[in-house]
Design a protein around this nucleic acid. Sequence first.
DNA 1: GCGACAG
DNA 2: ATCTTGTCGC
Length: 232
Amino acid sequence: MGPFPTLHPPDPSPEEAAAIQTRLRASLRLERPVGAIRRVAGCDVAYDEDERRLFAAVVVIDAADPELPTLEEASVVGEPAFLYVPGLFSFREVPPILAALERLAGDVDLLIADGHGICHPRGFGLACHLGLAADRPTIGCAKTHLVGAWDEPAPTRGAASPIVGPDGDELGRVVRTRDGVRPVFVSPGHLIDIESSADWVVRLAARFRLPEPIRRADARCREDQRRARGSR
DNA sequence: GCGACAG
DNA sequence: ATCTTGTCGC
C-alpha cells in the first residue's frame, strides 16, 4: 500500500516536533469504523544494541478467520533518524513502519501499533501519527503506562477500566487480555473510537497478552535482526 | 525540588 | 528498545 503523503517538514527539532503533534491532533477523527475490517496489520520495530540500526516489520492477519492466519508480511532495515524521547516516539518509529507498509502487496483495513494513541501528553501518540499518515483506522496498544489516571481492572480476561485525562475525559482503557496477566494500555490513534479499539484488542489477543498481529510483527523484527547479525 | 517518562 | 539468570508454572 502507499505511497503516503508527508505530514510535516523533515528533521524537526524536538520543539518543532512537539508543535507538529499539537497541530496534527486537530486532524484526528475518532469515530467507529464504518466498513468491514478483515485485513489487520500489526506493526513493530526492533533495534540493535547500539541503536545504530533498526528493523521494522508489519504482519497482516485475516481477522475474519477465527484462526487469525497470516496473509502477508513485509519489513525494512534502516537507521534511526530521531532520538528516543518519551512523547516524541512517533518521529522515531513512523518512518520505518510506513516504509514497511509500502512493501505490502495489498491494502489493510486496520493497523495496530506497539505504543499509545491519543493517550499521550499532547494527545498525539504513535498510533495517531501512523494512522494519519497511512489514512487507515489505527489502534495504539502499549505495554506500559504513559499518561492518565487509571484503576486496576478485574483480574479476568476482558475486564477493563478507563484511562482518564487531566480534564476528566476518557483517553483510552486499561485492558486485561488474559486471566491474571498485566493489562495493556489501549487508546485509539485515528479513524476509530475507544470502545472499538478495546474490543479489537481483546478479540485479537485470545492466546497471549498482546494482540496476535503485534506478536507476529515483533517476531518478524527479531528474525530479520538475527539474520543481519549472523551475516556479518 | 522530586518523580515520571510509550519503544 | 536491549542486556541478563534463575525461577515458577502449565
